[in-house]
Write a protein that binds this DNA or RNA. Structure first.
Lengths: 211, 211
DNA sequence: GGCCTTGTGTAACCTATATCACAGACTGCA
DNA sequence: TGCAGTCTGTGATATAGGTTACACAAGGCC
């Protein structure tokens, strides 16, 4: 755990804080697909991502999903933080996109460290900052982009986050994450295939070139 | 300024901090319609709202707008804060929705006070918290709601924020803020009038009952 | 009063996306 | 080997919302 921690956070946190993290944090490895946070659940800890990626999802009244953004190495979940402070329930769902390593910090240290460590404060602010910006860009794409643009962006992000230019997903799953329907996604994917930008397989999409 | 400040923030901030705010802050009154922040501009200060309301807008590549949310008494602009820290340009536009009173804090005090005053820290966190949540709900309505639902919500918010159940806006303006088109908004408004929920006038919409 | 600008109403049409229906194709398992 | 379940392709149709076009009404101003 110590090496992992140092690798991802060594240059951000002062060593006293790193030591505290080692003391109170719990190291966890979760497999792809594992659900780390559910909507309406109370938050017990705050995750520091060491490797891998989480996807953060929102749900509508009908239970349909929408992918908000990914969290990666060096990120933490700002939504979780806000929940900790306010003692409110989670507004989002978080699922491991890939096999993921992370350190869970019990929530009571959040506030303590905020007064104690400057680097922690900066980290927390920085984290809010990036999450707000990600939300803005997610919102941009939903408000301003067509579904085909959103799909291309989705495919790009998927390959980047998974570091694999074959995406192992069914059309149905993609439709869920984009809050659309399978038929529509299949059609748009077929169009991309016809343009030579991707190759379709069962349960998999091979990215050729999306530019 | 001192009374105004105490009225809105007296119960949040410790008195030492209130004094500092009085020392370094600039009291401002801005008329409805005044632009306080433009996309791409650098941020010079952070606003503490004393009365009135600001609307926060996002813009797409074509220059079309989208209303994100309102800031009111006791709020501050988290987007501004993140910009201060990162020295980045503003991602949003802020315009006074009503005549508004506010106190501008030069950005260098942001970090200073964050280490110095617990109440300031909490205020900043709390503020990030609410903004993230507002963004989430804005996103919900764009992703999950039809335009007619969004319109109703818009009308409700407008009456609440302006504290006036006659909305002084043209259909064109409403269309801008909802990122739609005038014809469509006129149509939907007419439908609401036919259902007896509003009465339409030139340059004004009278709210009867929106439930 | 007559004229110009701005705002509103409405019809006709277009497009993106959703929905429904169904046919094949593939895959795992009995 | 065959069957059942899952995934993909595609046509037909529906709908929300955007676009274009134009008539008219309300005010302001000469």
């Amino acid at each position: 755990m110590i090496q992992e921690l140092k690798k991802s956070y060594g240059h951000i946190f002062e060593s006293a804080l790193l030591n505290e993290i080692v003391q109170v944090g719990t190291y966890k490895e979760v497999p792809a697909g594992h659900k780390l946070m559910e909507i309406g659940a109370y938050v017990k800890g705050m995750p520091l991502l060491v490797s891998g990626a989480l996807k953060v999802l929102r749900e509508d009244k009908n239970g349909d999903e929408l992918l908000l953004y990914y969290l990666e190495k060096g990120d933490t979940c700002s939504m979780t933080m806000t929940c900790c402070m306010g003692q409110t329930k989670s507004e989002i769902r978080a699922i491991a996109e890939t096999d993921t390593k992370l350190i869970m910090i019990p929530i009571q240290y959040m506030e303590l460290w905020t007064s104690k460590y400057k680097s922690w404060r900066n980290f927390v602010f920085e984290s809010y900052h990036s999450r707000l910006n990600e939300m803005l860009h997610t919102l941009d794409s939903i408000a301003f982009d067509n579904l085909d643009q959103r799909l291309i962006h989705y495919l790009k992000e998927k390959t980047r986050v998974n570091n694999d230019n074959i995406i192992h997903q069914t059309h149905q799953n993609i439709a869920y994450e984009l809050h659309s329907s399978r038929v529509v996604i299949s059609r748009l994917l077929k169009k991309l295939e016809n343009k030579g930008q991707i190759v379709l397989h069962r349960n998999a999409i091979e990215i050729v070139s999306l530019d």
